[in-house]
């Protein structure tokens, strides 16, 4: 899937990189069946194309902090196989990832490290709060536990469960893919944290 996305992506970008160039090319050539390009060309909006590349090649930053990380690993292994959704490339460097999966209890001691790693990830980036602890502090109503990672990060998808099953993570991934495919990437240049998100 990834290879397909990437190769087709290059093809599309090569063709559509400049709108003016495309219009010029369309005016210059006859519109109709051309056996040389038929099967290799897709007509679409640039936004939609970029969304399609992005949503099918999410590279997760596995922020495994507690038992949810075990389910995250299961989601990556062969039975559940997160690579069916193009998100199997777990990057342990924030510089190379665009989806942070916060899997587990975020303690105050860890909170600013999580925040720093998030800030080191390049835009565009998304966050999944996996499980009760990451979403709300869960059962840890404790002096040591951050009551939900959304207090320090803009969360896109929350997953309930303690821990959630791998299917739930895949569901969240699909929800996020839907969200990404509806985002205006080219026209909206604001970084994620400025899009009406509250940070404490």
């Amino acid at each position: 899937m990834n290879f397909f996305t990437k190769s087709l992506g290059h093809h599309l970008l090569g063709l559509y990189f400049s709108r003016e160039g495309l219009i010029k090319a369309m005016k210059a050539t006859e519109v109709g069946y051309n056996s040389k390009v038929e099967g290799d060309v897709v007509h679409t909006r640039l936004d939609a194309a970029v969304s399609w590349f992005r949503k099918n090649s999410l590279w997760p930053m596995p922020m495994g902090l507690a038992c949810c990380a075990i389910e995250l690993m299961a989601a990556g292994a062969s039975r559940f196989d997160i690579s069916r959704f193009g998100a199997e490339v777990m990057r342990f460097s924030p510089r190379q990832s665009d989806l942070m999966i916060v899997a587990g209890t975020v303690t105050y001691k860890m909170a600013l490290a999580v925040r720093r790693i998030y800030e080191q990830m390049p835009e565009p980036k998304w966050v999944i709060a996996m499980g009760a602890c990451a979403s709300s502090g869960g059962m840890y109503r404790s002096y040591a536990t951050l009551q939900g990672v959304d207090r320090i990060l803009p969360v896109d998808v929350y997953i309930s469960g303690c821990p959630p099953r791998p299917e739930a993570l895949l569901e969240a991934l699909m929800k996020l893919q839907n969200k990404i495919s509806n985002e205006p990437h080219i026209t909206d240049k604001k970084p994620a944290r400025d899009r009406g998100l509250v940070l404490s």
């Binding site: 105050y108 909170a111 600013l112 109503r141 404790s142 002096y143």
Partner: peptide, 27 residues
Amino acid sequence: DFPLAGKPSEMPDVAFSDPIPLEGGPF
């Protein structure tokens, strides 16, 4: 004498803590 809900604290660039909502809590 430390409350179950914790106390607020702030160490810039190191860590912070807030008291937690205990009302109706999980246990």
